[in-house]
Simulated scan of single mutants.
Amino acid sequence: MRIAAAWSWRILVVAAVVALVGFVIVQLRLVAIPFFVALLLAALLVPFSNWLQRHGWPKWLAVAVNELAVIAVVAGLITVVVIQVRSGFPDLQKQTLAKYEELKDFLLASPLHLTETDIENYFDGLVTSISEDTSALVEQGFDLASLGGHILAGTLLALFVTLFILIDGRGIWNWVVKVFPMRARPAIIGAGEAGWLTLSTFVRVQIFVAAIDAVGIGLGAFILGLFYGGFPLVIPIAIAVFLASFIPVVGAVVSGGLAVFVALVYLGPVPALIMLGIVILVQQLEGHVLQPLLVGAAVKVHPVAVVLAVATGGFVAGIPGALFAVPLVAVLNVMIGYIGRGEWRTNPHPSVADVTSPIVVPRRRREG
């Protein structure tokens, strides 16, 4: 009983702290989400910026090149998707309505004895359910009327935070470390360095995996269109697969389903089945080769934990929660493991010497 009680109150304290942190993050989600996005961008860009500086580039130029590259890539992807979707959406809508009428005629003539009212009620219920689920994932408490302003403000905030991390990330980290007591600083520094290395590795590996998914499904859709008279929206589908792949497991399934839907609407059932086979093949390659060998080695988290983290993050915080769940779990796993092993006692990180001195507050000079 004493052991159970000792464990119980400690678990309750930890759970209370986690709940409090989660509550604060939810309340400050307009700031927290851009901040987490900035951390992911910085984890990708800081090594490249340091590499440029080691090869003789001035710091201001290396930082400017990285920041402008992010803006150019994001703006380019958005522009391509908007142009392609605007040109192909009217035809997609027309084809979707035509396929709906064909399906309705098939169901009316089937042995199910369905009436037109039954079919319309089923489809209305399906559309309503999808709309509610999508709104719950996307909005997360935001007003749709102000969602555009939130996105713009969040984008600017993420870019500013990324810029400051590129300029003085080490100084910011040293300031954070000095908030902790002297005895805790070696553990915090070593755990933070290990977590940052894991986050950087995860982002680079995940970009590689997402690119393979996008190329595989996009190339399959393009080849399928060559044999069946054209496959529209190939580029937006490939970009959607690339972006959705940053949400492990779930993202690839959803984006692959979009490709299958477009194939069904434009080309028919047989090409849609072929597209489904291509999506499954690419996802099997990701799930059984790329994820275990690359992502698994980078995050050091079991695949079951990855699935549970994505599901929990999506349930708690929607799309942002699913996006940040795996890197958060990976970083916490590495940091807690580092502190638990006690390596910081016998082999402290070299940067410990920079922040082991206490904060000195200068005394104000007496006047008179």
Rank of each mutant, 00 (worst) to 15 (best):
I172K: 09
P34S: 05
V326H: 10
G251W: 00
L243A: 03
I223C: 00
L285K: 00
R10L: 11
P248M: 09
L294M: 13
E102Y: 04
L147S: 09
F48E: 05
W173S: 05
K104R: 15
G225H: 11
V161G: 00
R2V: 03
V301L: 08
G337Y: 01
V306E: 05
T312D: 12
W7I: 12
W173K: 15
S245W: 03
L163A: 04
V26A: 13
V215Y: 00
L157Y: 05
L199E: 08
T201Q: 11
A353N: 14
F35T: 14
G229T: 13
G340N: 02
L39T: 04
G56V: 01
R366Y: 02
K178S: 08
L103R: 12
G225K: 02
A252S: 07
G314C: 01
V127G: 08
L328R: 10
V279W: 04
L276R: 02
V81A: 05
L224A: 00
S129H: 06
N347H: 05
L152Y: 06
I11M: 14
A43D: 02
D143H: 15
P320R: 11
P327L: 15
F123R: 03
R366D: 03
A330M: 14
F227K: 12
V282Y: 04
D354Q: 15
V21G: 10
F208E: 10
R183T: 07
E116N: 07
P358W: 12
L159R: 06
A38L: 06
T117S: 09
T79H: 09
N50W: 12
A38G: 14
E116M: 15
L328S: 14
V329M: 11
L61A: 10
V253T: 07
F106K: 15
A353F: 13
P348G: 04
